[in-house]
Amino acid sequence: MLTALAALLLVVLASLALGVRDIDPVEVWRALTAPVAGFVDHDVVLDQRLPRTVVGLAAGVALGTAGTLIQGVTRNPIADPGLLGLNSGASLAVVCAVWIFGVTSPIGYVWFAFVGAAAAAAIVFSVGRGQPVRLALVGAAVTALITPLITLVLLRDQQAFNLYRFWSVGSLTGRGLDTVAMLWPFVLVGVVLAAALAHRLNMLALGDDVATALGQRVGTTRALAAVAIVLLAGTATSLAGPVALVGLVVPHAARRLVGTDYRWIMAIGALLGPVMLLTADVLGRLVLPRSELEAGVVAALLGAPVLVAVARGRNVAGA
């Protein structure tokens, strides 16, 4: 827990200090506490790095928590917001926003992304009726249905295509503090709900029958989890685009660190989410000399090996 917190602090500091222009941590501190107007270092910290760091924190917490909830509630170790069709729902809404309404600013399509994710989730959860396998199948069906629709729009609308190319990769830039100011209550409600549900997930992990026999209303747990997942994953996608793998990898990493108790997995997952997303963002700034790699790309490059390591370490037969 302390290690995870320390890692988070460190990566936040790195996110504020590192980039094309490396800034002394002392100057970072000064920029935050007593900024000097017109001083380039301070302007860079406040205008560019602070917003993307805050976006990364909010989206990371949301992704880590949502991923843990989804895996817990479906008892499916490869479940993530993408599997439930949330990302494709958000994507379709965003390209439609650009195509039909001519929306071009991130703040403009935040709500479209949110509503798209929520709509997809509503379909998946209501048809899937909480049964793990059915949820995964319906999620795959919804994604399969939506993906060609997205392509259809992209083929017809050049502007939508250009915007979507960058949005769909997932990135922390281009979204300001105003976006976070709008969406943070959703993250807060989602995280509080997730914390309250964590112990229930421990029982659910033993099977629906055992959880019911222990006195849990399994349906209620699933419904509340669905609400939290929509709030969190919807916010994350609105903020950073459909970032792949963070929601999938973080719960596994958390399990490796703290075992099988969801009260701990949830807490560590909420911290590791932003650690992974911000690390990806910082690395993306450093690998190319004069340009940047999007956080979504780096997160995928980081996440895939971690996932392979988890798969190799896992006793598949005993699962």
């Binding site: 008892r75 170790p77 992990a205 099977g207 055992v210 399990r255 099988t260």
Partner: peptide, 8 residues
Amino acid sequence: SSIAPDGV
């Protein structure tokens, strides 16, 4: 149908 979670 009881399930012992991985690693418990």
